[in-house]
Amino acid sequence: MTRIDAKFAELKAEGRKAFVAYIMAGDPDYDRSMEVLRGMPGAGVDIIELGLPFTDPMADGHTIQLAGQRALEAGQTLEKTLQMVRSFREEDDTTPIVLMGYYNPIYSRGVARFLEEAVEAGIDGLIIVDLPPEEDDELCLPAQAAGMNFIRLATPTTDDTRLPKVMQNTSGFVYYVSITGITGAAAADAADVAPEVARIKSTTNLPVIVGFGIRTPDTAKAIAGVADGCVVGSAIVAEIGAGKSKGDILSFVAALADGAHKG
């Protein structure tokens, strides 16, 4: 059982929905990013998604693209991202961390080496947005053999023919993308999301977490109310990009978490 599996079992026993929060590793620099990362569990975050900066983030909107650029310009690397997780684990050995990004940095490092280092650092799962199920031999199956969850995205365009293929080797949870397009492009609508979550849950026993387009505590509550939880990324990254203090950022995160937990 991974930390992700344990967290969802704990939440289910408590009758609570999950709040998942995303930040870009190294944004705006290593030290300030590390401060926010360390503060997230105390702000009510159940699972942390840690973005891996990449030069060509095709699935990300303007806000997260800029975060990646800031991180790269500040010298963030895959090695430094792994070090962030190692440092986090010195104080917190229970909060799940999912590394989210693109395959190129992992491929460049070498899959076997990366997986060994990621497990040692304390990463629990991967979301690699540019590896489809047809490429499961590349990273998904080796990652699961190494004891990590491989979390897949389902979208409004994932039809009933495609969905079983997407679910085939998914573990941990399913990330449902509430809107068509890039991150931060539109607002999520619980009325539109609910039937899609039900459709996915008819094919899997995994929790379904909804992301994209969630910016307020009320929206987090509404979306979590029709799913097993929600993810907020761009709204948090925008606070970081605006130069807010660690306290202000974590207060914003805490309000979102409170909304999700009431869902």
Rank of each mutant, 00 (worst) to 15 (best):
L52H: 09
S87M: 10
L256H: 04
D136W: 06
K246Q: 14
A255E: 15
D29L: 07
L66T: 13
L37N: 00
V119M: 00
D218R: 11
D130P: 05
P217N: 02
E134D: 11
I123K: 04
R70V: 07
E120G: 09
V20Y: 03
S33H: 03
A257Y: 08
D93K: 15
V36A: 12
V129P: 10
T63S: 11
A255R: 14
D248F: 03
D130W: 03
Q144V: 09
A238G: 08
T94G: 13
P164V: 10
A254R: 13
G211P: 00
V85N: 02
I106A: 04
D189G: 06
E116I: 01
A145E: 15
P105R: 05
N149I: 01
G39M: 08
I214S: 01
R89L: 10
V129H: 04
I128P: 11
T158G: 09
A194C: 02
A227E: 02
A185D: 08
P96S: 05
R38Q: 13
G172Y: 10
L256M: 03
P28D: 09
P28Y: 07
A43E: 07
I182D: 06
L206Y: 09
A187Y: 03
A43K: 14
V129W: 01
A121T: 12
L82Y: 06
G247T: 15
G213Q: 11
E49I: 07
T216E: 08
L72T: 07
F8R: 02
A227M: 03
M167T: 13
E135P: 04
K262A: 14
P105S: 12
G44V: 02
I214V: 09
A13F: 03
A71G: 09
G51S: 10
S33D: 04
D130T: 10
E35K: 15
I200N: 08
V208I: 02
G172C: 11
